[in-house]
Design a protein around this nucleic acid. Structure first.
Lengths: 183, 183
DNA sequence: ATAGAATCGACAACATGGTTGACCAGTTCG
DNA sequence: CGAACTGGTCAACCATGTTGTCGATTCTAT
């Protein structure tokens, strides 16, 4: 994540003499941008989960959603805990604990892999599929609300802008929890 | 956070018959929007902390940054742990622990309040001020990079768009960590 | 003035979700 | 076949949150 940062630009802006931005930072302080992005993200996620709770899924948490996606990404055969861990960018042990939790909540189930006795395949239960299906519908509805407020073009402009400025691998990495944590 | 969600829109979009969005959701799946917002946020935060580490602050974490802001928001006299907790939207106990951490890292210090023997004022150390100053400069530089890539107008459009779609109180709430956690 | 209510900080117990390290059981490969 | 890798699990630990309790202090209202 460090690789794309150009330290020269930092010095250029810290030193008011030579500035990279065509617009003075004082005009729009840079610290607002991450706050707005996070507020937007959190607004969507909070509303998603409020609505999921209303639709019969009061116990699913944002972290679970990411994990469910990672399990579903393993295909119909299921995924192993190690797979999930790799997909989420966490250790296999942490992934195992999260899967335990999802199994306890009846969103996933474990089965032995007939082809490899080491592996335990994790699959979504119908309830797990249901929460993902509902999530997709709710996200579509929320996006529809934003489109109604902003206009479809402005919203598409936000999405396109973010797509161009975010490293593509980063865009769909599912590790939402770990980045705040330890070194 | 639930209050602003209009459940009718959800049903309208779930039911393909009556749709609120002028654009079919299938065109732009709604689930990408939160992912893009989060990816943008994380990109900025990751680069900020990579650069802070390079500039002599390798131990500060995103959560600490929010707490430092909350302390600084208390004004020059300092803030109490309970203040910080309220500002961050967490319990006073949790805020106290975070303050402990910042004190251990030499970013903050505690002092008795001469006017109220119950209170312990938390103030930033010069090191704490330094990390906030550098953070502001780095955020300005990062915003400058985005402005250079997108063009200033498109970036301003993203910011303005998010501002209109995000509930204003939500925009600058500093509680970044708790929303993922427990019920 | 004083009794009762509210607030602050601290301690304890616990949940969650992350980390390492170690280890065993299987599988794969030279 | 044996070495090396891989998957899952156990154990210890850390960071952050949560409740609940409590003593000390301050505020408030009679």
């Amino acid at each position: 994540m460090v690789d794309q940062f150009d330290a020269r630009n930092v010095n250029q802006v810290v030193d008011p003499g030579k500035r990279v931005s065509p617009e003075p930072p004082a005009d729009r302080p840079g610290f607002e941008l991450p706050l707005l992005l996070f507020a937007g993200f959190r607004t969507l996620i909070d509303r998603l989960h409020a609505e999921l709770a209303r639709q019969g899924h009061p116990d699913v948490r944002p972290a679970h959603g990411f994990a469910l996606q990672a399990i579903a990404a393993g295909g119909p055969g299921g995924a192993t805990a190690s797979d999930v861990g790799r997909r989420l960018g966490v250790s296999k042990q942490a992934a195992g604990k999260t899967v335990d939790r999802l199994v306890a909540l009846a969103y996933a189930e474990r089965a032995d892999d007939p082809a490899d006795a080491r592996r335990k395949l994790v699959r979504l239960t119908p309830r797990g599929v249901d929460v993902l299906t509902r999530s997709a519908a709710i996200f579509d509805a929320l996006r529809g609300q934003w489109a109604a407020t902003l206009g479809p073009e402005r919203l598409a402009g936000i999405e396109d802008g973010l797509r161009t400025v975010v490293p593509p691998e980063t865009a769909f990495r599912l590790d939402a929890t770990s980045w705040l944590g330890a070194p």
